[in-house]
Lab assay of single mutants.
Amino acid sequence: RLHIEVEGTELMKKLVEEAKRRNLNVRAKVENGKWIIEID
Rank of each mutant, 00 (worst) to 15 (best):
H3D: 06
E7R: 12
D40L: 14
N23H: 12
E38W: 13
L24K: 02
A28V: 15
L2R: 09
K20L: 14
V26N: 00
R22S: 04
R22P: 00
N25V: 13
A28H: 04
I4Y: 11
I39N: 01
D40R: 08
R22F: 07
W35V: 04
V6E: 03
V6P: 03
K13P: 01
T9K: 09
V16F: 08
I39P: 00
K29I: 11
V6F: 08
G8N: 14
K14D: 04
I39D: 02
K13V: 09
V26K: 01
R22Y: 09
W35H: 02
G8E: 12
V30T: 09
E10F: 09
L2P: 05
K34Q: 06
G33A: 02
V16H: 03
E31I: 14
I36E: 03
R22H: 09
V26P: 04
M12E: 01
K34S: 05
A28L: 14
I37Q: 00
G8K: 11
L15P: 00
N25K: 13
K13N: 09
L11R: 09
V6M: 06
R21I: 06
V16K: 04
K14A: 11
G33L: 04
V30K: 15
K14I: 12
R27L: 06
I4R: 04
V16P: 00
E7K: 10
K29V: 11
N32L: 04
E10I: 08
I37E: 00
K13D: 04
R1T: 13
I36K: 02
V6R: 03
I39W: 06
R21S: 07
V6S: 03
R27A: 05
I37K: 00
N25W: 08
K29F: 15
K13F: 12
K34L: 07
R1W: 14
L11I: 11
V26F: 08
E38R: 05
G8W: 13
E5K: 08
R1H: 13
E5I: 15
R22D: 01
N25F: 10
K14T: 06
R1D: 07
K13R: 14
E5A: 08
L11E: 14
I37M: 01
N32T: 02
R21V: 03
K29P: 00
E10N: 08
G8I: 12
A19K: 02
K13A: 07
E18L: 15
E7G: 08
V30Q: 15
L2V: 12
R27Q: 06
E18G: 05
N23T: 03
R27F: 07
A28T: 12
I4F: 13
E17D: 11
V26E: 00
I39L: 06
I36S: 02
R22K: 08
E31S: 09
L15K: 01
A19C: 14
V30I: 14
A19T: 02
L15G: 01
I37D: 00
V30L: 15
V30P: 07
A19F: 15
K34V: 11
V6H: 04
H3M: 13
E38H: 09
R27I: 11
N23L: 09
N25R: 14
L15Y: 08
E18D: 09
R27K: 08
R21H: 05
N32S: 05
L11Q: 11
L11W: 12
E10Y: 08
